[in-house]
Design a protein around this nucleic acid. Sequence first.
DNA 1: ACCTGAACACCGTTCAAGT
DNA 2: ACCTGAACACCGTTCAAGT
Lengths: 168, 168
Amino acid sequence: MSRRDEVIDAAQRILQDEGLEALTMRRLGEALSMRAPSLYKHVSGKDEIEAALQQRALQSLGVALGAAGVDLASLAAAYRGWALAHPRLYELAARRPLHRDQLAPGVEADAAAPLVAAVGADPDAARALWAAAHGLVDLELAGRFPPGADVDAAWATVVRAFSGLTGS
Amino acid sequence: MSRRDEVIDAAQRILQDEGLEALTMRRLGEALSMRAPSLYKHVSGKDEIEAALQQRALQSLGVALGAAGVDLASLAAAYRGWALAHPRLYELAARRPLHRDQLAPGVEADAAAPLVAAVGADPDAARALWAAAHGLVDLELAGRFPPGADVDAAWATVVRAFSGLTGS
DNA sequence: ACCTGAACACCGTTCAAGT
DNA sequence: ACCTGAACACCGTTCAAGT
């Protein structure tokens, strides 16, 4: 494993265990037993680290969605399940600017492909569905729903609304 | 106008004109012709400033939604219109942790009330609709849709999906 | 009552220097 | 090839001191 990959791996560990605000160059250097300036010999800067983790997140999410099949309900469950299982990665990939220039081409499209397939290849419907799923996850992760809110029911409503679109 | 209100006003101007990352205590002090530490005589810290702006954002959004009526399509247009007209305020109020403890009680609920009314007081449907609208705005503001994407059509799809819910 | 300068504990990043 | 210390230009915040 290259030294660069060790840096990215350590960054992912810090992100998942301690959160996004803990992911600093000094903290990362500490985890690798070096000073922060030394990291710049293996990585161009913090942006490259974030881009690499965004890429991993998109790929992992895409795999999870692909495994869920084409059924709208199970796809929705897979989206939410992945996000709740990897909240820091989701946050980094969905709530932060995407470092598109440093992403392998197609990663974004591959992650979204299962959603597109589920709505019958209609790109507008796919974007609407993606937005609804993203909005639900985003609000849930941000703690925006009131304590007693039935988030499952909100998801079910979205699934029902979009089923009505393609079903009839 | 109290000195505190002058601070909040200046903060809003900086936020809207220069963006969230320009809203620093030193920059804010400069705009008010004082040093950053002096701000702490009028405001407890940056959190209070952010909370005050979040409150203004929620109130302004609530007014815009209330004026749109109960029609789902015009409500959706009002939500998107407000967000695109005040992208920095929307970002502060929707993409950042809400400083709930420093918010006047009811502000959140008041902003959401028109959405709740539009879906027939069903809280699950209201959350689903809110999430879909938030997701669409969030992705659009973050530049996550591809350049040629028909965002209008995606909004129309959401409106159609939710109309089907209550209509039949 | 209001404002200041100096300081503290942080950031990301650059760079000359060492091995 | 790899790592270091010192430095630069930033953060939010505290505090003793001035008027």
